[in-house]
Design a protein around this nucleic acid. Structure first.
Lengths: 220, 220
DNA sequence: TGTCTGTATACTGTATACAGTATGCGAAAA
DNA sequence: TTTTCGCATACTGTATACAGTATACAGACA
């Protein structure tokens, strides 16, 4: 007798709502002008306000949403100073990840990263969104392979805050071939096995992204 | 006419519950054997389950609490591997903070840190709890002065996870005078203005704390 | 005595009801 | 026309009610 285990999978409606909202934000379905009101969402999803409320509060706490003075929630909007701070936080997490990976310098792991870069950089239609997602997946791969749930959690937290305005996506007409080289350079920095060096290279890469971002904001 | 502005201060009951629970955990009032049940807490605090539930779920999401198989929430218990991961995450945040502080190398800021170290190290009764709190305040000071809300938020998130078992407190009979020197050494590393050096010193300090912790766990 | 099965109970997740507060709009007053 | 005030309404926070599920316990049966 070999029956499948039924996953306890404590999946509540609130989780479902949370995922749907985040997806809608990522896809741009929920934009800066939309006001999310508990009752409206509840009616639309045909459930009660309770799980809706839970998901909204969670997203607020995570810095994705903010309360609107007129009631309801709206996408959280960062000013330039906050963007800079977010990039610094990114550098903290990804820099440390790079340090650890360089310390291990495991050929198998490095190969896995290389494969991810190659796969993800092969973008069919180079829109900002597509580039953002590819970029996210590549950077996430580095952190994933450190095998540290807290670093990964913080990584996701940081990138989720950026999701609504495709921060970290560099600018519209980003030179993808150059970016490919950049990502490979990150990997090569790890392969030197020099912790300090790997951290510096990552930090510089992120810093460069920040400056591109600023130009993009100023230009657009 | 000069009337005081009344803070909007969107303070809900859930926030109050959250604070009370966290304080109770920090003070040891809620221990590893306590099971937190929504109805019970609601009765005790004389409010409804709704805000209680919200606070509990938030603490669960933050990794402070975990659901018990018998219902209710209990303190989250980390295994040794997770403790190691948490220390790595700490190193990421505090290391980056040190890097930035070293880069600025602002005498005024450094003086503020020095003052905090001197004040906090002057502990009246050297219990583990007192040492944990002093240590937390000193380390938090470094991060505070970077002026980066995300780094500070992550710092708090990490330390809150540790609060229930006074992780990061090193061991019972920690040599406080030695530890004082250590904290001053951290500051001195920043005062060199060498980013890479400051990061390494912080990382080593945290790593040393981790090893002390392991000895403590093994010995206790 | 040990194992199985039915039932009570403990606790949660979700829905709904209620009350308070802030916002915006329209009517009255200048 | 512009300003001020009051009222409707929009929306939230909190309380309560309801139903489902899992755990524990007790009694039946081997």
């Amino acid at each position: 007798m070999a029956l499948k285990v039924i996953k306890p999978e404590r999946r509540r409606l609130a989780d479902e709502v949370y995922d749907q909202l985040l997806t809608a934000i990522t896809s741009g379905d929920i934009g800066p002008d939309d006001r999310l009101v508990q009752e409206k969402l509840a009616a639309e999803m045909q459930i009660s306000r309770t799980p809706i409320r839970e998901a909204l509060l969670r997203l607020e706490q995570e810095g994705v949403l903010a309360t609107s003075p007129r009631g309801g929630f709206v996408l959280y909007r960062m000013d330039e100073g906050e963007v800079k701070e977010l990039y610094q936080a990114r550098a903290a997490i990804e820099g440390q990840a790079a340090r650890i990976l360089a310390h291990h310098n495991d050929p198998q792991i490095n190969a896995m990263i290389r494969r991810t870069i190659e796969t993800e950089e092969d973008i069919a239609s180079p829109t900002v969104r597509a580039y953002f997602e590819a970029n996210r997946k590549i950077h996430r791969r580095f952190v994933e392979l450190v095998n540290n749930r807290y670093l990964l959690e913080m990584f996701d937290s940081i990138w989720n805050r950026a999701v609504s305005f495709q921060l970290f996506a560099a600018i519209e007409n980003a030179d993808l071939s150059k970016s490919l080289g950049d990502h490979m350079a990150l990997l090569e920095a790890i392969e030197t096995g020099d912790k300090g060096h790997a951290l510096e290279v990552f930090t510089d890469h992120i810093q460069a992204g920040f400056e591109l971002q600023l130009e993009g904001l100023a230009g657009g």
